[in-house]
Design a protein around this nucleic acid. Sequence first.
DNA 1: ACGATATGAATGAATG
DNA 2: CATTCATTCATATCGT
Lengths: 217, 217
Amino acid sequence: MEPQNQQQQQNEDGGGSGKGNGFLCRQSSTRWTPTTDQIRILKDLYYNNGVRSPSAEQIQRISARLRQYGKIEGKNVFYWFQNHKARERQKKRFTSDSSPAVSMQRGGGVAVSNVWKPDHEAFHNKFPNISHGVCSASPSSASTLTVGQNMGNYGYGSVTMEKNFRDCSISAGGSSTGVGGGSLSHNFGWVGVEPYSSTYSFIDKRKVLLDEYDDEE
Amino acid sequence: MEPQNQQQQQNEDGGGSGKGNGFLCRQSSTRWTPTTDQIRILKDLYYNNGVRSPSAEQIQRISARLRQYGKIEGKNVFYWFQNHKARERQKKRFTSDSSPAVSMQRGGGVAVSNVWKPDHEAFHNKFPNISHGVCSASPSSASTLTVGQNMGNYGYGSVTMEKNFRDCSISAGGSSTGVGGGSLSHNFGWVGVEPYSSTYSFIDKRKVLLDEYDDEE
DNA sequence: ACGATATGAATGAATG
DNA sequence: CATTCATTCATATCGT
């Protein structure tokens, strides 16, 4: 991403830094600042190789590899993937959180709609089918190539994919959430702010859904 | 702060907006510039309704509703609340914090029209070990008014210094990842994108695991 | 025109 | 995996 440039500076210091400030050396901010090369590789792995939640071993390898381009730790890699995936999902949720739509087995590309993503580098976008969502399990997709290193194994068909569907369907059913309470200023029922906080957790009326405005676009 | 005197009515442009972009049609002016109506509604939600971190569904509704007043996307709403909350807290940290004594009661600058202000306090100074008295005492503003919705999460009352330790080493033995071949795009064999991600259900011991991620190269 | 400030956007790090 | 917090960058806007 980074439509505009910025960062790109890494201290090769072998440690120390951190909170050991006290002097004008205010630049070794505790936080990891990925170099452009590191980001490039990470994205390559993410988009071109479908890496989403690397295992501990993979993380070690990745971080070791990326270390050539700057200081980095395993947790950085871990967080990077976590965040990248989470944000991609979140983005989708804000815009079209209609229905999970498990749908077909990757019949037609994943189409990662770039709605509010400034596009990443826009360089390596060659391979269209990458196991994007969680539901891959694609049996015979000929796309095995990209991830087909020669480490011997895989068919990519056993990708597990854990149980991601926890929030499936909201069923905007009846609008029984009496909003009649009356807000002080306006009726913000459309927002979904519950007028009363229930103490009973098992009812879980979290999803309010009483919108009548609904959105379009 | 907060120049609330602008009547800019959303530039619906699609080509050279105010910015002096000389080439071709530019996407709007990069960043979203909320209209006064949008800001008014957002603040209403924030202050009068206690909305702080709207959920995805709420964000959708809010953005849909605000779209009447100008171009807006879900992320804009998301960021707006994020920022607004963060900045309010940040400013508060400078003024009232740093001394439990007097300190001018947040008179700082937040001169906006607030009619509730549910949150105050919330000091979770993330210090490794800080003795934190359980001073639970719902203080100011008990005016429940009429909107008593459960706004997400507020109350940091309990310390929740939970530290679930579930040791479980990952034993990053020497994997037999023979690197070497050649893949079509890049050679990512070193990553070991093996599909047998199996089901390690120990994916959650954070600290411990994160440490393990780090390797010595 | 600048410089300061307000604020949108992005993202690393954590926590639940 | 979702959510949240803190920081930081970038830019719009205003003041002088």
